[in-house]
Amino acid sequence: MLLRERDTAEGRLVSVCDADCLGETYDNGRATLTVSEEFYGGPEAEEADAEAVVDALHRAQVGNIVGNEAVGIAVEAGLVDEETVLEFDGTRHAQLLWL
């Protein structure tokens, strides 16, 4: 998985995607989801295991998670409710917001 963290005016933004999702665009009939290098990759992104992903999501105010593995880890860790997960062309997507 690719993990990228950055600080914004609104707090820490964490983006996570399965590596094979990078550069892909998915559709679910109502919306499209593009997993861009600019947002999920780049030199700031690092390869991460499940533990690093969970730790980063705990530090985030906002999280964007794409891919079956990445979303599955967030659900398993109790950070994302399965009922809120969206599906795009068989690929899962979730957002996380800590208030």
Rank of each mutant, 00 (worst) to 15 (best):
T8D: 02
E37A: 12
L22A: 12
L22Q: 03
E44T: 14
E10D: 10
N68R: 02
D7R: 05
A9V: 12
E47P: 12
E82R: 15
V14C: 06
G11N: 01
H58A: 12
A70F: 07
H58L: 08
F39Y: 13
F39P: 09
G29P: 09
I73A: 03
Y26N: 06
A31N: 07
E69W: 13
R30W: 11
T8W: 01
G72E: 00
E51T: 15
G72I: 04
G72K: 01
G23Q: 04
E24S: 15
N28F: 07
G29N: 07
L57N: 09
D49V: 10
D20M: 08
G63D: 02
A70T: 09
V54W: 07
G23T: 08
A50F: 10
D55C: 12
V71P: 04
L13C: 13
T84V: 14
R6M: 04
G63E: 01
E82H: 13
R4Y: 00
Y26A: 09
R4M: 04
R4A: 02
E83A: 15
Q61W: 08
E24C: 15
Y26R: 05
A70V: 09
F39Q: 03
R59S: 15
N68C: 06
D27Q: 11
E51S: 15
D55W: 08
L3S: 02
E47Q: 14
T25C: 11
G11T: 04
G29M: 03
G67N: 00
T34N: 00
A60I: 08
N68S: 09
A70E: 00
V53Y: 06
E10K: 14
D55A: 15
L79R: 08
G23N: 06
F39I: 11
A19T: 15
R59C: 12
A45Y: 05
C17Y: 08
G78N: 06
V35F: 01
A31F: 09
E5G: 10
V85Q: 05
V35C: 02
V14L: 02
I65V: 06
L57P: 11
A50T: 13
E5S: 13
D81T: 11
G41H: 10
G41P: 10
V62T: 13
D49P: 10
G78V: 00
D81N: 14
G63T: 03
A52W: 03
G72W: 00
G11D: 01
H58P: 09
A52L: 09
V85C: 10
G67P: 05
T32S: 10
I73E: 01
A56C: 14
